[in-house]
Design a protein around this nucleic acid. Structure first.
Lengths: 220, 220
DNA sequence: GTCTATACCCCGATAGAC
DNA sequence: GTCTATCGGGGTATAGAC
């Protein structure tokens, strides 16, 4: 209880510093100085630098996944076990986008930490992401129930593209702002969510893509 | 001439080792051992570990961008300065996907290096990517000419989503394979290209997204 | 169980001789 | 251009104090 003051102080200091300066530029010595604890305490409580990062990541990650499933479950219950595809996609990408985007000046250090994590992807984070497959399978199942005529392959590609748009937009938000000279407003989170959901829905509902066509288009 | 044998040997060894084991797990000492050169030679020729990685990345990156522009130019000339949107998108994502995907067993170490680079994104690589904005602007221009009725904002979002799908599919190809239990065939590159182009085209040509709608859907 | 002091080893970088 | 030697600093491991 009072005893994990050290542990908590390390987590708080680490999250703040990582959010501000990234993983590579923050040393454990920086963190322990900020938290006013001893260097060895990090290894005692977390085992290694990577596992400290992992701990921060999972905490936030679990919260997002819980919110995703909450929205998904609510939607399927309301629809009698079969939700509209837009609503499923909304549950999939909404929590993630809402957790990382939004007005810059009010972005929590937790949010900025998650953006860094999206970009850098150190080993422990990839490990955790790979364990997320079971979580994604639940969405694949809901999508299959929503679109029973669609092939599994199309479902998976739709899921992949939805996540692609959400994560890439977070990862490269700075570049998109620069490229569009500010015309793309990344602070309007609900607009971004709507755009991603809209495109992903089209991908999943449009007449079969004639994917196998050679399409030698523009091949010199 | 004979003098840059050292330089070349370092580049070759570095690319191979980074492709196999990633940036974090390969030390300069590993590289110089593989290349049979002296440790200090790396800093003499490249300045730092990061700049060595950057050199490898730009070489490959420039080749891809050249191919992209070649396809774009050919398409616009053929269409009298105005190419179909599918063809523009094909020129945008085709070279990148072709350079990183394909049958696993025939993937060059250059290709595997670029996949690592897509995932890890060390500082020098992000620096280079930010310089790519001018390159992307050329595609935005072509897209605007192709779809003159579309707003700039929609053009930029379409461009963003096209790149998102391409890069995310490369980054997370392993996860998609696992998730779909092999049903999504990432070795069939032209199929992947066709899928990305198809979805991005829909995103850009479908009736205006009613993006600003609050869309309180599923909000508990 | 917690926390501290300290030492270890390896990494990237550099200086200076050749 | 190339090499040897070395430096500062990073993460990690351990021994022991509370």
């Amino acid at each position: 209880m009072a005893s994990d003051h050290t542990r908590t102080a390390i987590l708080a200091a680490a999250e703040r510093l990582y959010a501000d300066r990234g993983f590579g530029d923050v040393t454990l010595r920086d963190i322990v100085a900020e938290a006013n604890v001893n260097l060895a305490a990090v290894n005692y409580h977390f085992g290694s630098k990577d596992e400290l990062i992992a701990e921060l990541f999972v905490t936030r990650s679990i919260a997002t996944n819980r919110e995703r499933l909450r929205e998904l479950k609510a939607a399927e219950e309301q629809g009698g076990g079969r939700a509209p595809i837009e609503v499923i996609l909304h549950a999939l990408v909404g929590p993630t986008l809402r957790g990382c985007l939004g007005p810059e000046n009010q972005r929590s250090s937790a949010a900025r930490f998650m953006i860094r994590a999206s970009i850098k992807s150190v080993p422990p984070i990839r490990r955790i992401k790979n364990r997320e497959i079971d979580h994604l399978r639940k969405f694949a199942g809901a999508m299959r129930r929503s679109l029973p005529d669609r092939s599994d392959v199309d479902i998976y590609w739709g899921l992949n593209f939805a996540l692609a748009m959400a994560h890439h937009t977070i990862r490269e938000s700075e570049r998109l702002t620069k490229l569009s000279e500010g015309k793309c407003d990344l602070d309007d989170v609900e607009d971004v969510v709507a755009r991603v959901v809209s495109v992903a829905t089209m991908a999943l509902t449009a007449g079969r893509t004639e994917a196998k066509a050679p399409s030698k288009v523009a091949a010199r």
